[in-house]
Design a protein around this nucleic acid. Structure first.
Lengths: 203, 203
DNA sequence: GCCACATCAGACTGATCGTTCTCCCTCTGT
DNA sequence: ACAGAGGGAGAACGATCAGTCTGATGTGGC
């Protein structure tokens, strides 16, 4: 009884090989082409996995999309955005502005793919759709990051500030999708005057 | 020779009945549910038109979508947005800010449907897609409206200003789609400080 | 009445979609 | 060596999609 059953362990923690290939392929395709535009066939073909294997790891396309969004939140929001911002500056106000410097590099990269959370929000227009809800939840997570920086900076109404900041972020992303590579610089200029005018919490 | 040929006139100016019903139905469905999510069947059924009749007026779904976008630009951009803004204020700077007052009412309406131009831009991710190009062109038309107001207001760099303003507009629309009905008020507050800091053209 | 044309109703094609099923191969632990 | 599980290849299913074809029904101009 003391020794762990290997088959049980292998079942509870799925072997990374096939599942990882599926998720990596889904990430690339969903992020760049959207959800509806990418069929299961494309993921099966490009990942070199059997169809049945995909459906053994993910019950449905919806489950795969939800797993993609979860990975997007880890890789994009946490590892990339949060990581780059915290690397670029140390003071909370400087970090808030650094978001748009990080965006500037993003918008100028050759394979700019837009914000998957915004995309799925618009693709799954029904607010009751689990995919829509997941996209909205991950966007709210980004606002939590902004809100925490606003609190560190001693700004009053951190939640309202985060919502304002997020408007600038999302607007610049859409503009970049239109082809305006300098959208981040424009948003940063607006952000700077907004931050300057922002009321501080009395110490 | 003086009298116009009735059949020719009837051909050049198509009878409004069937075509109008199709376009009106397509407008409602495309604007609220998106392009990919609405099939030809739904439009045929809801407009009470025969399938063949639809395909006689529009060669393909893409042609119908392009006609929808053209109507959207007339009804939304010109008649509604521009009309409401020009009714709300007379001075160009006041009109620029009034955009967000108009948006505020829009975001609080029960059937808020978002910006179809942004939606089709993201649904048709390929920049070479005629639908993508049309959406981008109509968004550029909105910026032309802003730019003209900026010029009237004597602001320097009207094009750059219009792009900034448009970032606020698009960002607030996305936020409203997330459920933040007060996004227009937040954007207006930012717009006010941006406008105050904006350089004026020397007279 | 008659002709031309728009419209309607509905079956149909071919492609694509998500999903399931069947069969075979290759590992791995004992 | 053997059992069992994971994975691969591909056929197949039912649904849905855009688009076409046929044939009947009105309808307006001569």
């Amino acid at each position: 009884m003391g020794a762990a059953d290997p088959s049980l362990v292998g079942g509870a923690v799925p072997r990374p090989k096939a599942r990882e290939r599926i998720l990596a392929t889904a990430y690339e395709l969903f992020a760049h082409r959207g959800i509806q535009a990418v069929g299961i066939d494309a993921i099966v073909e490009q990942s070199g996995v059997a169809r049945q294997t995909l459906y053994r790891h993910f019950n449905s396309k919806q489950a795969l999309v939800l797993a993609f969004l979860e990975r997007r939140e880890q890789l994009w929001t946490q590892d990339w955005l949060r990581g780059e911002v915290e690397r670029a500056a140390t003071e909370p106000e400087a970090r808030l502005l650094a978001i748009f410097d990080v965006f500037d590099g993003w918008f100028h990269s050759s394979d700019f793919e837009g914000c998957s959370f915004i995309n799925v929000l618009l693709e799954a227009a029904d607010p009751a759709d689990p995919i829509h809800r997941a996209g909205a939840a991950y966007l709210a997570g980004i606002r939590e990051f902004i809100k925490a920086l606003a609190e560190e900076a001693g700004l009053s109404d951190p939640d309202g500030f985060a919502r304002k900041w997020h408007i600038l972020m999302k607007g610049s992303i859409i503009s970049a999708g239109e082809g305006d590579c300098d959208a981040a610089r424009r948003a940063r200029a607006m952000a700077a005057v907004v931050l300057r005018e922002q009321a501080r919490r009395p110490d």
